[in-house]
Design a protein around this nucleic acid. Structure first.
Lengths: 124, 124
DNA sequence: CTCAAATTGAGACTTGACTCTCAAATTGGC
DNA sequence: GCCAATTTGAGAGTCAAGTCTCAATTTGAG
């Protein structure tokens, strides 16, 4: 049987309220606002459960540390700022890219990542 | 001054002749055919130099270990078989996805990965 | 309220992917 | 062929990311 704890709800809340994918460290400091004693082990433990239960998703992109996001967010893709190393969401999805697979290959999912500079880093 | 060694040419040859990205372990065993004593340290050292010199490129995709490929290969994207964890090349490129970036963001590059099963793993 | 079961936090440990060190071997200008 | 400079292989070391252990704390059914 599973208990509802302050740490778990804080972590879930941070994840669903974020408007971009977060690193475990991001989550730790954001959720730490409501649960000051929060430990990293708990963040990782909780992310693992959320991922197993399909509520969160791990996002790995070259040049950035691992990020997590809520699966409740609509289908979207990513933008990695090569200056500040943050991941942002893109709206929309290039339909038709699934057709790029060779004969005999079965496509289940796809991912698109754009690399560049975010608006903050572009500005002087 | 830099020496031309059997190990270096074997590693370069393996990379340029491959028709898909390779892991350091793939490269070690393939190049090991011509240089049996080849060590992993040499593979990593050489990949680092090739990457620095722009002759090779690191490819990181979620669910697969790091892969390397020759930059001589034409622009393309990837297919990750979730069964055998191998990376394959896709031909073509969905042009226009660079337009997905928000206002004020500058796009420098992009990456597309399809996930699914390769022809070998699809077949019974 | 009670108390067994579940959860937590701290810190040690593990894992994968490199990177370093150094003695021995190789390379190539002469 | 000589020999200084470069490179190599083996194994130890490093680093980031995550997992484990366990005593202390929290949760919630009754």
């Amino acid at each position: 049987m599973s208990y509802a704890t302050r740490q778990r709800s804080a972590i879930s809340r941070v994840l669903t309220q974020a408007n971009r994918p977060l690193t475990p460290a991001d989550i730790h400091s954001a959720a730490g606002a409501s649960v000051p004693s929060l430990g990293m082990a708990t963040v990782y433990r909780c992310l693992k459960e959320l991922t197993r239960d399909g509520a969160a998703r791990l996002i790995v992109v070259q040049g950035a540390p691992p990020h997590y996001e809520s699966t409740k967010r609509p289908h979207h893709h990513f933008f990695l700022c090569q200056q500040c190393r943050s991941l942002f969401d893109l709206v929309g999805c290039a339909s038709g890219i699934n057709q790029m697979a060779p004969q005999g290959f079965k496509v289940i999912d796809h991912e698109i990542v754009l690399y560049g500079s975010c608006d903050t880093c572009c500005a002087p």
